[in-house]
Design a protein around this nucleic acid. Structure first.
Lengths: 202, 202
DNA sequence: GCTCCATGTGAAGAAACATTCACATAGTTT
DNA sequence: AAACTATGTGAATGTTTCTTCACATGGAGC
């Protein structure tokens, strides 16, 4: 039962996807070269034709993540509308992303990914920091528009924004799909909006 | 180099503490029976005098966690003051707890703990759910006091409350202590408070 | 002081896993 | 069509880790 040969570009992508999915369903502990190979349809040793070792596969997962989150922010960068509208849109986009790719939160929140690997720790931190920076930039725009209160620290707001999604996703995983992440986010948004928006009454 | 003999009650506690600490510093991957034993000052096989197997040790970590969080909520249950004051106090208490015991977030957010063990998944979910329920109860009290807006769903608010802390703790771990969790929480609190409190102007 | 039981020790087994290597083969280039 | 190169395979190796077991020992109770 020989697998069909593929170029290394294709296989690298297949392997990274399979690895990401495995982490989502079985956690880092369940991420074995054997499991990845089985999912891709090749033999464990064949993985070494496309990645130097397991560490490189995990790095590929992070690259995948980076592209996903980065693409999200770029989407709203080119959007019309007020800053508050764009923040709301980003929230929905973010939820869409993690619902389509439920493994992402597991990777981001799992200490297993970075404990013991300073290089990966820095990499993951960079991914999150740059995401936060983009959110903070939108907040600043909102402040310039006069829609978001001036006295708020943009970074504080950005971190709070992340907090709108994080607990829900964890509860979603813990309850095996029992929580409606989108619903919770939709309910939380107007509350959050009220917290940051400028007083309408002068 | 024989270790001094201890009763099984003492050793069980020592082992659970050592395990919790190890998870915090090295992650679940670094939680080996050998590492636990070294930390306690006994030999790996001696652990089996006090726990049936490694799974039972991990369960003991969760029990430890449950007692910690439960104690926190019980503290504010007997507090004087308005609901908003008590929520603020709970926020600070929570931060104090996770700062003294930095391993807690790692355990709660690490999918490794519950992936592959439905029983542990349910257990962890129960711990978090009951914590959320206690927060929601305080929110309801606030609504009865006329301090928190009636139209808000208490559970939504409780989950948002969790979101005040979670992102900071993850950033704290990722930046190896670079983030000031307490500071971020103190900055976020007035924003959150503004979001949920009743309009002062009638 | 003696006995007995719970606790501690070291060696050994068994399973899982990452990684290497020699060999096979498909697909591309010449 | 022949040769070459990149990809796939299966076996083997070395390491790590959990777990068991026979034996040792300290201390509590008689």
């Amino acid at each position: 039962m020989a697998a069909k040969k593929q170029t290394t570009e294709v296989r690298q992508d297949e392997i990274a996807r399979a690895a990401l999915e495995l982490v989502g369903t079985r956690g880092m502990k369940g991420l074995s070269m054997a499991a990845i190979a089985r999912k891709v349809g090749i033999v464990p040793s064949a993985i070494y034709r496309h990645y130097r070792n397991k560490d490189d596969v995990v790095d590929a997962i992070l690259d995948y993540l980076q592209r996903g989150l980065g693409g999200n922010v770029r989407t709203i960068a080119y959007l019309e509308g007020t800053a508050l509208e764009r923040l709301h849109f980003l929230l929905m986009k973010h939820i869409e992303l993690i619902q389509q790719n439920k493994s992402i939160p597991v990777v981001v929140f799992s200490a297993e990914v970075y404990k013991g690997s300073p290089r990966r720790r820095v990499k993951l931190l960079g991914i999150i920091e740059s995401y936060l920076a983009e959110i903070a930039a939108v907040v600043v725009q909102g402040q310039n528009e006069g829609a978001i209160r001036d006295e708020l620290d943009p970074k504080t707001v950005a971190i709070m924004f992340m907090g709108l999604i994080q607990p829900s996703t964890i509860l979603w995983h813990l309850s095996v799909g029992g929580y409606d992440v989108a619903k919770q986010a939709e309910a939380a948004w107007p509350v959050f909006r009220r917290a940051i928006e400028m007083d309408s009454s002068p």
